[in-house]
C-alpha cells in the first residue's frame, strides 16, 4: 500500500503590498499647514475649555464642536517616555526615545521622538525622561507639513 507522506515543514510564502491615499481633511489640514510655518495649532472647545492636541473637530468631553484654534507653547512636560533598544521590522533602527509631552497651554499630551539625548546607558537615559521633565519643541529646517516636522529635546 502506498500512502502520501505528509511533510510537516512544508509552507507557502506570501506578502501583502497595499497602497493607500489618506484624505487629511480640514482639521488635520489646518494643523499641518501651521506646522509648515513652525507653529503648532491646538483645537479649543469654549464649552469645556479643553485644548486638544492632536486637534479634534468635536470636543469629546462636551460633545460640542471645537470652535477655536490656539497656538500651543513650544515647550512642555513629559508625561510618559520610553527608550527603544531593539529593532522592530519596518520601524526605525534603535536606539531612539519617544515621549508623550503636554505642551504649555494644552490639555492633552502628544507623542514624538526625543532627540539629542545619549541613549547608550538606558537606565541613566530613562532617569532623564521622567514624567514632569521639561522639553522644547525643535522644528527641522525642511518642513513638509507633517507631524514629523518637529521633535522634542530636553530643555
Amino acid at each position: 500500500m502506498t500512502t502520501t507522506q505528509a511533510v510537516d515543514d512544508d509552507v507557502i510564502h506570501g506578502e501583502w503590498h497595499v497602497r493607500y491615499t489618506y484624505s487629511v481633511g480640514k482639521v488635520a489640514g489646518t494643523f499641518f499647514a501651521a506646522l509648515r510655518e513652525g507653529r503648532i495649532l491646538a483645537s479649543r472647545c469654549s464649552d469645556s475649555g479643553l485644548v486638544y492636541l492632536p486637534p479634534r473637530a468635536y470636543c469629546e468631553r462636551s460633545f460640542q464642536p471645537c470652535d477655536g484654534w490656539v497656538e500651543a507653547g513650544l515647550a512642555g512636560e513629559i508625561e510618559a517616555a520610553t527608550i527603544v533598544t531593539a529593532a522592530f521590522e519596518h520601524l526605525p533602527p534603535p536606539p531612539y526615545a519617544i515621549a508623550y509631552v503636554r505642551l504649555d497651554g494644552v490639555s492633552t499630551a502628544m507623542v514624538n521622538f526625543v532627540r539629542g539625548l545619549a541613549l547608550s546607558d538606558v537606565p541613566a537615559a530613562a532617569a532623564r525622561l521622567r514624567p514632569g521633565t521639561r522639553v522644547n519643541v525643535v522644528f527641522g529646517a525642511q518642513r513638509a507639513g507633517r507631524i514629523t516636522d518637529f521633535h522634542y529635546e530636553l530643555a
Binding site: 487629511v24 492632536p54 527603544v84 522592530f88 520601524l91 519617544i98 507633517r146 507631524i147
Partner: peptide, 17 residues
C-alpha cells in the same frame, strides 16, 4: 497615519510608556 503612526508605537512601546 496623521499624528501617531510615525513614532514607532506598537504594543511593546505603548505599554512601556
Amino acid at each position: 497615519r496623521f499624528y501617531e503612526h510615525d513614532f514607532a508605537l506598537n504594543t511593546v512601546t505603548m505599554t512601556a510608556l
